[in-house]
C-alpha cells in the first residue's frame, strides 16, 4: 500500500468506527516508516474532522462519537509510542479540566463536551459529576490547565459555577485559567454576571469559542 492509501485507511477506520482496520492501518504505517505524526494528523484526524461535521449536522450522535473516539484511541496506542521515540509531540490545542458542579449529577451534556474537545485535539480531564469546587482548582493547578469547564443543568446549581470563580479569585489565580460555563440553566447573562470568560450554548460552540480564545491569547 502507498502512503496515501494507508492514510486513507486510517481516515476510513474512524468514519466507519472499525477498530480492527484502525489497528491494522496504524501498524502498516509503522511498518512502512510513515511519519507517525503524519499518520495521526493526515489520517486519523481527517476522519475525526468529518465526524465532527456529521455530529454538527445531526447525521450521527453520541454513540457514534464514542465509537470514533475509541477507534482513534486504538490507533493511537500503536502510533503514540512511535511519536515519542522520534522525540516528537502531537500538538495539543490545550488542557482542560471539566465537570458538573457540586450538587448537580447530570452527565450527558458534559460527556458530549468532553468527547468533542478530545476529538478536536484537546487533552481533557473529565472530573465527573457533583464535583467539589476545590477539586476543579486542584486539578487545574496540577495539570497546568488552560481552561476549566463548569457544567450546570439546574438553576439551583448555577451557584456552583460562581463558587469556583470566587475561589480562584480569592486564591489570586482567576486570570490563570479560561473559565467556560455551559449546561441547560446557563445563559450569556449569567456568565457575564459571575465573570466567566466564555459561555457555550452547546458542545460545538464550546470547542469553537475556546479554540478562538486560546488562539487570541497566544
Amino acid at each position: 500500500m502507498t502512503e496515501s492509501e494507508i492514510l486513507g485507511k486510517l481516515k476510513e477506520s474512524i468514519l466507519i468506527f472499525d477498530v480492527e482496520l484502525a489497528e491494522k492501518s496504524a501498524q502498516e504505517a509503522v511498518n512502512t516508516d510513515i511519519d507517525p505524526l503524519k499518520a495521526v494528523e493526515e489520517g486519523l484526524v481527517k476522519g475525526l474532522d468529518i465526524i465532527g461535521e456529521k455530529y454538527e449536522n445531526d447525521e450521527i450522535f453520541l454513540p457514534e462519537l464514542m465509537m470514533a473516539a475509541n477507534t482513534f484511541q486504538t490507533a493511537m496506542q500503536i502510533l503514540e509510542p512511535k511519536i515519542s521515540e522520534k522525540g516528537q509531540e502531537r500538538a495539543k490545542k490545550g488542557i482542560i479540566v471539566l465537570g458538573t458542579v457540586k450538587g448537580d449529577i447530570h452527565k450527558i451534556g458534559k460527556d458530549i463536551v468532553t468527547l468533542l474537545f478530545r476529538t478536536a485535539g484537546y487533552e481533557v480531564h473529565d472530573l465527573g459529576e457533583d464535583v467539589d469546587l476545590f477539586t476543579f482548582i486542584e486539578n487545574a493547578k496540577k495539570l497546568n490547565a488552560d481552561a476549566i469547564g463548569l457544567s450546570a443543568l439546574l438553576t439551583s446549581t448555577l451557584s456552583g459555577q460562581k463558587d469556583v470563580i470566587d475561589a480562584l479569585t480569592q486564591e489570586g489565580m482567576r486570570e490563570k485559567y479560561i473559565i467556560m460555563v455551559g449546561g441547560g440553566a446557563t445563559t450569556p447573562e449569567w456568565a457575564e454576571t459571575i465573570g466567566a470568560d466564555l459561555f457555550a450554548e452547546n458542545a460545538q460552540a464550546a470547542v469553537r469559542k475556546l479554540t478562538e480564545m486560546i488562539a487570541k491569547k497566544s
Binding site: 445531526d58 450522535f61 453520541l62 454513540p63 457514534e64 450527558i108 458530549i112
Partner: peptide
C-alpha cells in the same frame, strides 16, 4: 430522553 445523546436519533 435526549436526542443526540446515548439514544442517538
Amino acid at each position: 430522553p435526549l436526542f443526540g445523546g446515548y439514544n442517538g436519533g
